[in-house]
Every structure is written in C-alpha cells, then in structure tokens.
C-alpha cells in the first residue's frame, strides 16, 4: 500500500500550497517547531532525570511528572502540527527521504516509552520507570538527531 497519494494530497491542501509559496510563513513554522522542541526537551529531561532520582530527589517523581504533563502534551501538539505543516510544504521531498520514516518510527516509539514512564510512575514501579526513562532519553535524542540529518542526505 503506497502512502504516496497521502503525501501528494497533503501538498495540495490550502496550508500546503500556502507554505510552499510563502518563505516567511515557512520560516515561522520551522521556528515554532524549534521552540516547541526546546520546551519538549526541557520537560522530558526533567521528568526522566527525576524518575532516575538524579534531580528533585526529595520530590515524588509521579508528582513531578503530573505537574509537567500539560506542558509536555502542549509542546508535543505544537511540534506535531508544525511538523505536518512543514511536510505539507514539500511532501514529495520527505516521501522520498530514506531518513524520514526512521524519524517518524523513532518518534512514535519515544512517545510510547514516555507514556510508559508515566504509567510506571503512577503504579510506583520505580525500577521499571528508571529503565524506561533511560530509553526515553536515548529515543528523544535520536529523534532530534534524525530530524537534523533529514536535510543532509
């Protein structure tokens, strides 16, 4: 099953057509993507390092995660929407990029593992939370690196 029609359709949507033409709007969308990346990185670092008992040692890791989850989800939402818009501006370029599916797959796993950290903390499974937190840090780091290398192949 080819996903190419989906990519072609994305490029033909009004936002896709607009962003392909407007350099200023494309640059602004990239900037939003980067700003939300920074916020996401901050929340992930604090949640995972707290689960690992490296920081906030006197706090409850579940409590820290709970108080950061709205920010994490907000940043994820902005980064996902801006990401889709960036692809819509030039979809075939991403469709034919060998790194793109790897980045998306890694992103999906990172999100799942982050959800796992949440569940493990809620269920007070400290050992499991620590293992998943390490995996989470490695996965998010990989997503960022893959994102940068998208433009370099």
């Amino acid at each position: 099953m080819s996903l190419e029609p989906l990519f072609v359709w994305l490029g033909q949507t009004p936002p896709g057509v607009f962003l392909a033409k407007s350099t200023a709007s494309f640059a602004a969308t990239e900037t939003l993507h980067l700003i939300s990346l920074a916020v996401l990185a901050g929340t992930v670092l604090i949640i995972d390092l707290t689960a690992l008992r490296a920081i906030f040692k006197q706090a409850s890791p579940a409590e820290v995660e709970r108080s950061l989850r709205p920010v994490l989800l907000g940043a994820l939402a902005v980064i996902a929407v801006s990401g889709v818009l960036l692809v819509a501006a030039g979809p075939l370029k991403y469709y034919t990029n060998a790194i793109f599916p790897v980045k998306l797959a890694t992103l999906l796993v990172a999100v799942l593992v982050q959800a796992g950290v949440h569940v493990a903390l809620e269920k007070r499974r400290e050992g499991l939370a620590k293992g998943l937190a390490v995996a989470s840090l490695v996965l998010w780091l990989s997503v960022i690196i893959l994102g940068r290398w998208l433009g370099l192949i």
Partner: peptide, 25 residues
C-alpha cells in the same frame, strides 16, 4: 507564550534571498 513567539516570527517579513528548504525559497 508559544503563540506570541510565533506571531513575532511571522511578523518578521523575510526577504527571499537565502533558503533552507527547497520549497521555501
């Protein structure tokens, strides 16, 4: 906060000289 930053970014009208994504410039 993100919205403000985005609005400001959009307000920075960019002379289309350099590039970065193929379809952008």
């Amino acid at each position: 906060g993100l919205g403000i930053a985005g609005a400001i970014a959009l307000a920075l009208a960019v002379p289309a000289q350099a590039h970065h994504s193929f379809s952008a410039m």
